[in-house]
Design a protein around this nucleic acid. Structure first.
Lengths: 153, 153
DNA sequence: CTCTAAATTTAGAATGATTCTAAACTACTG
DNA sequence: CAGTAGTTTAGAATCATTCTAAATTTAGAG
C-alpha cells in the first residue's frame, strides 16, 4: 500500500497525517486481520521503538470518529478494528480466534422497535467453528491467525 | 413471575435451582432491561446482603452456557445479559444508553465466507439515537433506563 | 439426626484492556 | 527565535471481569 495514498486518505478525512497515524492506518489497510490495539502496537513497535500504546488508542479512536475505521465488539474482552467500512458482517471462530468477513445478500425488513430512531451503526456478528478448525479447509491466510484458542469445549 | 416456575425452568436446563440462581434468573426474566452484571448485583444485594458479585458472574455464565441467557456485546466496556433467547437484534442508544429489542422480518441469504463453518450464535446490533432522545416519544418503561449518557457529541 | 462429600458462595486479590494525566516533543506562525 | 497548538509519551489510574482459596450450604447415606 502506497504511503502517499494513505496520507491522502487521512487528509481527505481531515486527519493530519502524522507519521504514526500513517503507519497505524497503513497497518489496518494492509493486514485485513481485524487486529486488536495490542496486536497493532506489538507489530509496529518493532519498527518504531518509541511508539506508545496510548498513541495507538488515540489514533484508532480518531480514525473511528472520522469514519475511516470500524470498531468491532465481537470478541469478549477487547476491541477489534477494521479499515473496511463497507457494510458487512463478521464471523468469530471461538476455537482458533480468527475473524472472517461475512458478505451477504438480502435485507432485513421492518425493523420493529426502531421506528423513530436514527441508526448510525449496524453490526452483524456470527460465532462458531471455522472451516479450518472443522478440518474442511487448509489454513490459507497467515495474516489472519489469532493468538490462540479461546474455547476448548 | 412465579418463583416456582423459574425453579422449574432451571431444573429443565440441568441447573440446580439454588436461591441465588433463582433470584438472578428471575431478575432477568422480570426486568427485560438487558442489565449488566453490576446492575443485577446492585439491585439484588439490597435484599440479599450476603450476595457476592462473583456469584452473579458465576450464575450468569452458567445460565449462558446452558442456553438460558444470551450475552450481548453491544456496549463497549461491559457485557449485558438477556433472558430472551429467541432470535432478535438489539439497538443501543448512544445518548441515553438504553437498549431496545429489535425484531425483524426477512432473511440474509448466501452468507459468503461461511460455507464450511458452523454457526452457534448470531448477533445483530444497531447503534444510534432513540426516539425519546430525539424528542419523538415520551419515556415509557422506567425499567429500561441506563445509568447515564455515554455520548455527548 | 449426624456425617461426609460435593456443590455453591464468598471476599478479596489479581488480571488486563482501556483511559487518564501531565509533561515532553514537534510543527507550524509570525 | 519565541509562541502556540497539536501530537506523543510513560506511567498511573480505572474498572469489568476472573481467579483463588476458604467458608458455607446442600444432598444423600448410614
Amino acid at each position: 500500500m502506497d504511503c502517499g495514498k494513505v496520507e491522502q486518505t487521512l487528509r481527505l478525512y481531515q486527519i493530519k497525517p502524522s507519521y504514526h497515524r500513517i503507519r497505524i492506518y497503513q497497518y489496518l489497510l494492509e493486514r485485513r486481520n481485524h487486529p486488536s490495539a495490542d496486536m497493532i502496537f506489538q507489530s509496529l513497535v518493532r519498527e518504531i521503538p518509541s511508539l506508545s500504546k496510548a498513541t495507538v488508542y488515540n489514533t484508532l479512536h480518531l480514525l473511528a470518529g472520522k469514519g475511516l475505521v470500524r470498531i468491532l465488539g465481537i470478541v469478549d474482552n477487547e476491541a477489534r478494528f477494521d479499515a473496511d467500512t463497507m457494510l458487512h458482517g463478521h464471523f468469530l471462530c471461538t476455537f482458533c480466534g480468527c475473524i472472517q468477513d461475512v458478505h451477504f445478500q438480502g435485507a432485513l425488513n421492518d425493523l420493529l422497535g426502531l421506528e423513530n430512531c436514527t441508526i448510525d451503526e449496524s453490526h452483524l456478528y456470527f460465532k462458531g467453528r471455522c472451516a479450518v478448525c472443522r478440518g474442511l479447509e487448509q489454513p490459507l491466510e497467515p495474516g489472519d491467525e489469532a493468538a490462540g484458542p479461546e474455547n476448548s469445549s
